[in-house]
Design a protein around this nucleic acid. Structure first.
Length: 368
RNA sequence: GCAGGGUUAGUGAAGCGGUCAAACACGGCAGACUGUAAAUCUGCUGGCUUAUGCCUUCGUAGGUUCGAAUCCUACACCCUGCA
């Protein structure tokens, strides 16, 4: 924790900070799109950049499986490989333990996966995950955690996953320190530990304290947006806000609905990542002013000449692509439609973050 | 001209006496999607209406039968051989 994180201002629990990564500074609050396999689906790095995004995610599990970190390292590391100069954050693969749950075995040592496509059996552990993330060349990393669903079956495992996540964090951090010990402070990546505990507040509180007792650079909140109701998620964010170490960044994993982001930002969250803006874009959904959603594939847009949102400053809306055009491209299966709406949706989320950044800064400078 | 095959809902295509308003696919309409096994998945898709209801449909017109998309006859159109 040596000067990599600066708080510019804070108003109530909404924060305006700068995260200094080895690949550049990131202003928060910020939304980071998911480029799971090395690309934000359907977008070029330049298109991603056009949305004002400052960081892109990639996934340890998926890239390990294909093409493998050795190939990526040979191709120059994640930045050169993906053509993305922005700071890159890799997720640990912990979420895949959860999302691919029916094809894995979890032991204390780690997790055994079977690739649903190739049948390849692979093993992931806290050490392995960190090693892969180093090999990939990530600027920010996430410790390998144990995520559980919030359905009845998952809830039975909440305590177990909670405890294991902390044991795994200890191992993740040890491996992280081992692999970064020869790096200069400004050259080393940042590591986020993950809070778990399901919807159990006592466990969540304990988890927050335990994770923050470790020498991790950032706090990630995991295990939310995995099937709970919006009220349950918001309630947990309300509960956690007073428990965070304010001197470290707070990263809410997997949340990217506008309403949830606004709720999170007001409760101390600095960073978000989510597949929602891009996945839903490919499925024809666009957010418009007021956090409302429109389904561009709907017949009513057939002859609609207006852009997705006339108040939007994204390149898709600025270039005047009409709803009617986008609907047509969706109906004929043209990938361009998903691309154009992905740009719009990511920009929409990024603009939400900017609206929470700007007022705080201007308020502060006004006070000065 | 002769012989054979075919004509089914928006399209393609099953069905070959009752359990057929008619499989399935596509198309159409709508919904879902929150650390991406996701350009995916789900529902509806003759009409009226929402009921274990009625009505109209399987090229056209007749017929057989308690009952026909399914059998018979004629006609129309299409395809393939032989002339």
């Amino acid at each position: 924790m040596s000067g990599y994180f600066s708080i510019l201002s804070a108003s109530d629990n909404t924060r305006n900070c700068v995260l200094h990564t080895r690949a550049g500074d990131v202003l928060t609050p910020t939304f980071m799109p998911d480029g799971t396999r090395g690309a934000v689906k359907s977008l070029t790095p330049a298109q991603v950049h056009s949305t004002g995004v400052q960081t892109v995610l990639a996934n340890t599990y998926h890239l390990h499986l294909q093409p493998g970190e050795k190939i990526i390292a040979r191709l120059g590391g994640l930045h050169a490989f993906t053509g993305q100069s922005l700071p890159l954050l890799t997720d640990s693969g912990g979420f895949q333990v959860f999302s691919l749950a029916h094809i894995n075995k979890i032991t204390e040592d780690g997790v055994t996966f079977k690739d649903p496509k190739t049948g390849d059996v692979i093993f992931l552990s806290p050490e392995k995950s960190i090693q892969i993330q180093f090999a990939l060349g990530a600027d920010m990393m996430v410790a390998f955690d144990d995520v559980v669903a919030l359905d009845p079956k998952g809830r039975e495992r909440t305590a177990e996953a909670f405890e294991r996540t902390h044991r795994w964090l200890e191992r993740s951090l040890a491996e992280f320190k081992r692999l970064s010990k020869d790096m200069k402070p400004k050259e080393r990546p940042l590591l986020f530990g993950v809070i778990q505990g399901g919807l159990n507040k006592a466990l969540r509180k304990k988890s927050t304290q335990l994770v923050q007792n470790f020498d991790v650079d950032g706090i990630a909140i995991g295990g939310l947006s995995v099937g709970e109701t919006r009220a349950e998620m918001h309630d947990m964010l309300d509960f956690l806000v007073s428990l965070y170490d304010t001197q470290r960044p707070h990263f809410l994993l997997g949340v990217g609905d506008p309403i949830d982001m606004r709720h999170g930002i007001k409760r101390g969250i600095d960073m978000f990542d989510c597949v929602l803006p891009t996945r839903n874009a490919r499925h024809g959904m666009a957010w418009i002013n007021g956090d409302k959603k429109i389904q561009l594939t709907n017949a009513k847009f057939e002859a609609d000449t207006s852009p997705i949102d006339k108040n939007c400053d994204c390149t898709t809306c600025q270039k005047g692509y009409s709803r009617g055009f986008l609907r047509h491209q969706f109906k004929v299966g043209e990938p361009l439609a998903g691309t154009l709406v992905s740009i719009h949706n990511i920009r929409y989320l990024q603009r939400i973050c900017e609206t929470y950044r700007a007022p705080i800064r201007s308020a502060k400078s006004a006070n000065i």
